[in-house]
Design a protein around this nucleic acid. Structure first.
Lengths: 125, 125
DNA sequence: TGCCGATATATCGAAATCAGATATATTTGG
DNA sequence: CCAAATATATCTGATTTCGATATATCGGCA
């Protein structure tokens, strides 16, 4: 597996808002989706994701609804497993757009400091 | 002035190594250069930069030499102002290349999660 | 000439952040 | 029936980061 690159809060928020911009997801499914899509490079842990989701919800960037999944086998008597689905709010969508703009601007800025791409490669022209 | 985007360690190290890849600089001049080039978006503070420089030196990614600047006016008696010039080592140059590769790979990964560029613009075609 | 703002390096401690451990409960597959 | 996966949540120790503090010199201007 690839080296564990740690996504700090900023990137983290962008990634979470982005996946939620596509469709509603619940916590655990966010973890799995991000891991799969990033080829395991970005491994959200529960300890990082849940507090973030709670924060985003408090800021009204996302909204949640509980779902209770009852298994066939267990039947009536079972309490059922609980899932908390999150979806982006209009405010969240605006925030995402804004964060992306800022992110790209910042990355362009960083890139401007770097030696030009391919500065190390040998006469490929 | 633009919003204060804080460069965390990773980006920070890349930026510092990059400016040193161009030419030797001393601490204060690094702060000024980065501020100017980034249009004040990246403001290194002494409290962040100096410890980083010391770390980089300990890791032999950079080397330093002291310069004493004596003013005309003050003459012999003056102790002179001290500047610590830093230059990239061969090891530092390799590290930079490596960090850049990792940085770009990570950014590409993040970008892959984002809605495509210009997803919000209206029929400009 | 005396003072202030800029130049210059450096450390420290409070505050924020983060990864990993811990807790609890259900479901699925063997 | 048991272990691994699913699912949410918090807490704590370790690391990071920011801003304050310290010290000293230099340049310009009143």
């Amino acid at each position: 597996m690839p080296p564990n690159v740690k996504p700090q809060r900023e990137s983290l928020e962008i990634v979470v808002l982005s996946v939620l911009a596509e469709e509603p997801l619940y916590g655990y499914s966010i973890i799995k989706r991000v891991a799969n899509r990033s080829d395991d490079a970005i491994r959200l842990t529960a300890g990082v994701l849940y507090p973030l989701l709670h924060e985003l919800e408090a800021a009204r960037l996302i909204e949640s609804t509980w779902e209770t999944v009852r298994s066939d086998r267990a039947g009536e008597s079972s309490a059922g497993r609980k899932r908390k689905w999150y979806q982006l709010t209009a405010k969240g969508r605006r925030r995402l757009t804004q964060r992306i703009t800022a992110h790209r601007a910042f990355q362009a800025m960083i890139e401007a400091f770097l030696p030009p791409r391919g500065a190390d490669e040998e006469a490929t022209t």
